[in-house]
Design a protein around this nucleic acid. Structure first.
Length: 272
DNA sequence: ATCCTATCCTGGCTGC
DNA sequence: TGCAGCCAGGATAGGA
């Protein structure tokens, strides 16, 4: 499940190989894979072919490629998408392929078919609603406090909302709340200044540590572009640890459902 | 604003 | 061993 650290890892590792490259041919498996132009493989292939990839970057969990004609290729991996330089998936899971003029190829695999590709003139309609970048300098405790103000819903669904903070997913929200010592079902606007500070700190620390480990390859869903795995799965405190003793206090880690999402927590360290 | 449910999908697991 | 059924999960849409 690629979240911010995984997507950032992918972008960093793709960058030296794809920036400056020109696309010769594109293959797309089925109309559904193309979000824009809507389900139009022909136009996607036509307009994307021959273009030079000027710059690759990330916003939230979206991967963006600025093309030489002022258009943009956008990729979202959703649940199970991967971008790799060598065939690293079952052939029937191949959703798209970009062949560059130097002979190299970028493969887009996605078993669950939730991932999407866009080719747009203006990326704003795709990424315009996204909230703050949690690792940017703009994301301060004060900004977080403002985001929590007036929110009467639960903390976890709020942190998962990409319009509020862009890039957190199920794994890192659970890890963040554990680190901050906060219960996922806490009402968001009831946090003290000290708790907001802890939460702000936890978000940045958890994401930074995961990034340093090149992401989490939990059940090997996430694979880096050259085939390596991330290492953060070894550093998880609560996600996927149900029944195991908490690293802080020994209490068994609990799994509950919050907002329809599997949620992992230590009932002692994260009291209500 | 918030919550809940459904939808999209398939691999992998559970239980019989 | 085989098979049916269920579930995870990012994002979005629709209804309450």
């Amino acid at each position: 499940m690629p979240e911010l650290p995984e997507v950032e890892t992918i972008v960093r590792e793709l960058r030296p190989h794809v920036e400056g490259q020109r696309v010769q041919t594109i293959y797309v498996d089925r109309p559904r894979t193309v979000a824009a132009p809507p389900e139009d493989i022909t136009r996607f292939v036509q307009e994307g072919s021959g273009r030079r990839w000027e710059r690759i970057w990330r916003r939230g969990k979206f991967i963006l490629v600025d093309l030489d004609n002022d258009t943009h290729l956008i990729v979202h991996l959703r649940m199970s998408g991967r971008l790799v330089f060598k065939p690293l998936g079952r052939p029937q899971h191949l959703r798209a392929r970009f062949d560059f003029t130097d002979g190299s190829t970028l493969y887009f695999y996605d078993p669950r078919r939730f991932g999407r590709l866009w080719l747009v003139g203006d990326p704003t309609p795709v990424i315009g609603e996204l909230g703050t970048e949690p690792l940017s300098d703009e994301f301060t405790a004060k900004v977080l406090a403002a985001l929590l103000r007036g929110r009467r819903g639960m903390l976890k669904p709020l942190l998962l909302d990409q319009r509020v903070i862009a890039g957190l997913g199920n794994i890192y929200v659970d890890e963040t709340l554990f680190r901050a010592g906060l219960h996922p079902q806490r009402q968001a606007n009831t946090l003290s200044a000290e708790e907001i500070d802890r939460l702000h700190n936890a978000i940045r620390t958890v994401l930074t540590q995961a990034l340093a480990q090149h992401g989490t390859s939990f059940d090997a869903v996430f694979v880096r572009p050259e085939g390596e795995l991330g290492r953060q799965q070894e550093g998880l405190s609560v996600y996927g640890q149900a029944g195991l003793p908490c690293t802080q206090c020994g209490t068994p880690i609990q799994r509950i459902v919050v907002g329809g999402r599997g949620t992992h927590l230590c009932p002692h360290c994260q009291a209500r």
